[in-house]
Amino acid sequence: MKDGGDKSTRPSKPRGPRPLADLVSDLVDPIVSKRAGMTAGLLSAWPEIAGLRLEQGCRPEKLLWPPRRSDDDPFEPATLVVACEGAYVLRLQHEAQDLLTRVNGYFGYPAVSRLRIVQKPVQIHRVSRKVPSKPIGPGDRQMIAEATSRIENPRLRSALERFGETVLGRNAAERDRGGR
């Protein structure tokens, strides 16, 4: 056997496909840690850390680490700066200690000792789940009018006409996109 070293001591390269999140975090983590003092993992885990009551109105901004004077200095925990909308500030203040406990649980050691709240708008980009619709033609309108013509209540007839227009418009948009 050649003296090329034991397989267990050589670093192994991952084989096969890797999740895109792993590749992106390898690229983004150095930038985020340099600018904000934290990892992309904290940002992506924030909804679980903050919980349902806080995730909508606040987000972590940065970690402020105190300067180390020398290598002999003991470790000093950081301050977590959290951007928070006005309606959530009081709730965040009341739950600050629990939040710090969950953040430290995420890191696995007491990395954060203080919380600084910065009141400002928190923009959460929500994915639109609205199904696209397409305008319907005069033939479809005529068919809907005939189907609802015997309904005596004008409010019910109007509501059913709007419902029919929506259904036919969504079906037409789905057909155009190559769906069913």
Results as ranks from 00 to 15, higher is better:
108 G>N: 08
110 P>I: 11
58 C>M: 14
94 H>I: 08
133 S>W: 05
61 E>I: 04
103 V>Y: 00
119 Q>P: 03
104 N>P: 06
76 E>W: 15
74 P>H: 10
118 V>G: 12
61 E>W: 14
112 V>A: 00
86 G>A: 14
94 H>L: 11
66 P>N: 10
128 S>A: 15
93 Q>P: 04
103 V>K: 00
83 A>N: 10
119 Q>M: 15
91 R>N: 11
79 T>F: 03
113 S>F: 13
79 T>P: 01
120 K>S: 12
125 H>L: 14
133 S>R: 03
97 Q>C: 11
81 V>D: 03
132 P>F: 03
98 D>N: 13
61 E>M: 08
65 W>Y: 09
115 L>W: 02
62 K>A: 14
119 Q>N: 07
98 D>K: 07
118 V>A: 14
130 K>D: 13
82 V>P: 00
87 A>T: 08
100 L>A: 13
136 I>V: 07
81 V>I: 08
77 P>D: 12
95 E>V: 02
72 D>F: 05
125 H>I: 08
57 G>F: 09
116 R>F: 10
74 P>D: 15
133 S>Y: 02
59 R>V: 12
57 G>C: 14
80 L>E: 01
121 P>F: 07
73 D>N: 08
69 R>M: 14
135 P>F: 10
79 T>G: 04
120 K>I: 12
105 G>K: 01
109 Y>S: 11
109 Y>I: 04
132 P>Q: 07
110 P>M: 06
113 S>A: 06
61 E>K: 10
95 E>S: 11
80 L>A: 00
75 F>S: 01
